[in-house]
């Protein structure tokens, strides 16, 4: 990858901005899936109306504008004109809690529709985000906080090179069972060594 490479374009998916009106309808539907909300590790889990989702978008964009410590992307399908799925909203990818003086940030992402998971979209979005974080934002390291019951996310982040750094015992309580919170970290130099870029 070099300066000519498009930061936001993958092969299967691309990273895009928020499309307030259209995306809110889709995301509101995703919140009907409690599994999705639990996988993201949210506290109070509840279905959201499109109006509520729009309010969240507004707060995110205001934050990005004023605090400059967060970057939010939609994940969209590359698609083609034939299958009519071009630009379809698949999920979100986000860098938060950026501490510029330490060069740190937290990464999270999700693919909203269960039927679209396991197809490599998340992995590709993660790859784009890591390149963006380390090569454009010049962060020194990234963190990820994942509930212990989210095996798919743990595997995906491990494959991308993240290491388990801390285990927050019994931080989650779901369906009568307690789970650890897994805190993972990836240093920029570790990522460079893996990718030689």
């Amino acid at each position: 990858m070099n300066l000519n490479t498009q930061l936001f374009e993958g092969r299967l998916i691309y990273l895009g901005p928020i499309n307030r009106d259209q995306d809110a309808e889709v995301e509101a539907r995703w919140t009907l899936d409690s599994d999705y909300l639990h996988m993201l590790g949210f506290d109070l889990v509840r279905p959201l109306s499109p109006a509520r989702v729009k309010k969240q978008y507004d707060e995110i964009e205001k934050d990005m504008d004023e605090k400059r410590n967060q970057y939010y992307f939609s994940i969209r399908r590359m698609g083609n004109e034939e299958d009519g799925k071009q630009d379809q909203l698949l999920g979100f990818a986000r860098l938060t809690r950026i501490g510029w003086t330490h060069g740190t940030g937290t990464i999270s992402l999700g693919i909203g529709d269960a039927a679209e998971r396991g197809k490599g979209y998340g992995t590709e979005a993660l790859h784009l985000m890591l390149h963006y974080a380390f090569r454009e934002l010049n962060l020194f390291r990234l963190s990820a906080s994942i509930p212990g019951y989210n095996q798919a996310a743990l595997k995906m982040f491990e494959k991308a090179g993240f290491h388990e750094e801390a285990r927050q015992r019994e931080a989650y309580h779901l369906a009568g069972k307690r789970w650890d919170g897994i805190y993972m970290g990836l240093l920029s130099e570790e990522w460079s060594n893996q990718h030689g870029s």
Binding site: T101, H102, G103, T104, F140, R141, S143, E164, E165, A166, R167, Q168, R169, Y183, G185, L187
Partner: peptide, 15 residues
């Protein structure tokens, strides 16, 4: 103790 975020802080020229 439950772990550590490696080199999380950058202060005084050190991590």
């Amino acid at each position: 103790r439950e772990g550590r975020a490696r080199k999380f802080l950058h202060r005084d020229g050190k991590r």
